[in-house]
Amino acid sequence: MDCENGADTSTRKRKLCRLVVLSFALLCILQATLNISLRLAFYSSDTTTTPDCEAIIKNLTKQQDMRMNELACYIQQGWIYFNHSLYYVSSNKNTWNDSREDCLQRGADLVIINSREEQNFIREFKKRTWIGLTDAEKEQTWKWVDGTTLTISFWDTDEPNGAGGDEDCGEIYFPETENSWNDESCDTKNVWICEKKNVEII
């Protein structure tokens, strides 16, 4: 009796194993058939758009290559990429107006700081630098070089104060602290930072 039960169990296990393998094989065949059918349906539904899609993909690849080459060129010239902008730190010092003119000739402008992350990034240069901030148009109404008013600021304690008289230009004076801005005479000679905004690399 024991021998018969053992043989019966072994036969059942073999049948179950065959059933599992057969089910798996059928599922694989069904999956392959479905994939082929969907691909045929996709390509046959509108064959006229396929060349256009390929052209768009090739064009995108060319644009990406051009952007990467352009970015590499800027980096070779000393620009630094950060958060969709390129930054250039001068190696010499100049007045605020002459510094801005240099940036404009480079296709950029003096840096506009719009966030704490950008402020901390600029501070990493550890230099006293001109930024694109001025109240030359109206005293104590500070504006960026693009004409926008100041919304977030990092003035040092008791700044801006005009302590030296006619101090219409903004600078980073204390790069070791987050609140590092100071108002200074625009004729003071400082290092400056240019920013080229909205640089996409992909």
Rank of each mutant, 00 (worst) to 15 (best):
E70W: 04
G147P: 03
R116D: 15
T48C: 01
T188E: 02
Y87L: 09
K197T: 08
W192K: 07
T95N: 02
I202M: 09
W181R: 07
T148M: 03
N92E: 04
I152S: 15
S45L: 00
N120R: 14
R18L: 14
G6P: 00
V191L: 06
K127W: 02
K127A: 09
L19E: 11
E184Q: 14
A7G: 02
L40H: 15
F121M: 09
W130T: 04
C28P: 00
D146P: 05
A55T: 12
Q64Y: 13
I172D: 04
W96S: 08
C186N: 08
A7F: 06
T188S: 06
T61P: 00
N198L: 09
T177G: 00
L71C: 06
D8G: 01
E159V: 00
L27V: 04
I57A: 10
D187V: 06
T95D: 05
T95H: 02
T141G: 00
Q76F: 05
E171Y: 08
T47M: 05
M66D: 14
D156I: 00
E101H: 11
T11F: 12
K196E: 03
W155C: 03
D183S: 13
N92T: 15
Y88N: 05
V111I: 11
K93N: 11
I202K: 10
A7H: 09
F174P: 00
A41R: 13
F174N: 11
I201L: 10
S85V: 02
T11M: 10
C17V: 07
L104A: 08
I122E: 03
T129V: 15
R106Y: 06
C73H: 12
S153C: 01
L30I: 05
I172N: 06
R123E: 09
L60I: 14
L27M: 13
C169V: 07
D166W: 04
T47L: 04
K143V: 11
I56C: 08
V199N: 03
K196Q: 10
R18W: 07
K58N: 08
A55L: 05
Q31S: 12
R18V: 07
F121G: 06
N179T: 06
M1A: 12
D52M: 03
D158E: 10
T188V: 09
S180T: 03
G107Q: 03
I202A: 09
N94G: 07
F24H: 00
L133N: 08
V21T: 13
W142S: 07
C17K: 15
Q119N: 15
Q64H: 14
L27D: 03
F24P: 00
N179H: 13
D52C: 01
N198G: 05
F42N: 11
K196L: 14
F42V: 15
T134M: 05
